[in-house]
Each structure stands twice: as structure tokens, then as C-alpha cells.
């Protein structure tokens, strides 16, 4: 990832079509954070597992958003880790919510592969990975 520093002009990945991707990340981070804050304030006791998961998802989306905007090889690696975590998270939780629905009586962002968010949480990490690979 050293060649990231060799390129002269581009100091950030927030350019071109990547900006659209980042903005969708901003929206999702906002949505996940808002939802999580509400769940913690209003009804954490009802489904601690699902709500804790919402909070983890929210933090990962925030980290991914920052890592996509921030320049440099370290953030590039952070972006990969966060986005990989997202993909694993949405696949794991999505599958679990299908087969063990009692764990997710209350939905989280990643339940049913992010159906409540129009499957954006499922599609976004894949697009993110493609973008990261291209903008290396």
C-alpha cells in the first residue's frame, strides 16, 4: 500500500463517483446512529443483544465513513477492515435472523440482510470494496 503515498495529486479518496459512495455511507451512519441512540434511551432492556448489535453497526459505519474520507495508507487499511467487518456482519446477522429469529425479536440494522434499509447494508460493503480496490 506504499504506492498510495507515491501518487502526487490525490490526497483523498473522496473524489468522483466515490463521493456518492461516501455520502451513502454518511446517510447510513446517521441512520444507524440515530436508531441506536433511540434504542438505548428508550428500550434497551427489551432486546439487549439486538440493540448492542445496532450500536456496533453504527460505530462501524462511522469508522468506515471517516476512513473512506481520510487520506493515507493507514486509513486505507482501516477502511478495508471496517468494510470487511460490515460484510461479515450483515451476512452473519442476516443468516442468524433467518434461522434463529428469537434472537432478533427486535430488528437491528443487519437483520434479514438489511431489508429494513432496502438492502443497502448488503450492497454497500461490496461497492465499498470495489471502490477501495480501484482507488488504491
Amino acid at each position: 500500500m506504499a504506492h498510495d503515498t507515491l501518487a502526487p495529486a490525490p490526497t483523498t479518496r473522496a473524489r468522483g463517483v466515490g463521493r456518492v459512495l461516501i455520502f451513502v455511507y454518511v446517510i447510513l451512519a446517521l441512520a444507524a446512529t440515530g436508531r441506536s441512540v433511540y434504542e438505548f434511551i428508550a428500550k434497551f432492556d427489551e432486546a439487549p443483544f439486538a440493540y448492542s448489535l445496532s450500536a456496533v453497526a453504527a460505530v462501524v459505519y462511522i469508522v468506515a465513513t471517516i476512513a473512506l474520507i481520510a487520506p493515507g495508507p493507514v486509513w486505507y487499511r482501516v477502511a478495508w477492515i471496517a468494510i470487511t467487518f460490515e460484510l461479515v456482519g450483515v451476512l452473519t446477522v442476516g443468516t442468524l435472523s433467518l434461522f434463529l429469529p428469537e434472537l432478533f425479536a427486535e430488528a437491528s440494522v443487519w437483520s434479514w440482510y438489511g431489508m429494513g434499509y432496502l438492502f443497502v447494508p448488503l450492497v454497500l460493503p461490496v461497492l465499498g470494496m470495489l471502490w477501495l480496490r480501484r482507488s488504491r
Binding site: R15, G16, V17, R19, V20, F23, V24, V26, I27
Partner: peptide, 22 residues
């Protein structure tokens, strides 16, 4: 507000897409 500022900073086609998406 966020999208509007972004569109004013970088005036490219992608800012238009962002405004639509928001």
C-alpha cells in the same frame, strides 16, 4: 444542508447524484 455544502465545494456530476440520493 450537508449535501448542499458538498455540492457547492465540488461542482461535479457526482454532486448532482448525491443531491438526488439525499
Amino acid at each position: 444542508i450537508a449535501g448542499g455544502f458538498w455540492a457547492l465545494i465540488e461542482r461535479s456530476r457526482w454532486s448532482t447524484v448525491i443531491l438526488g440520493a439525499l
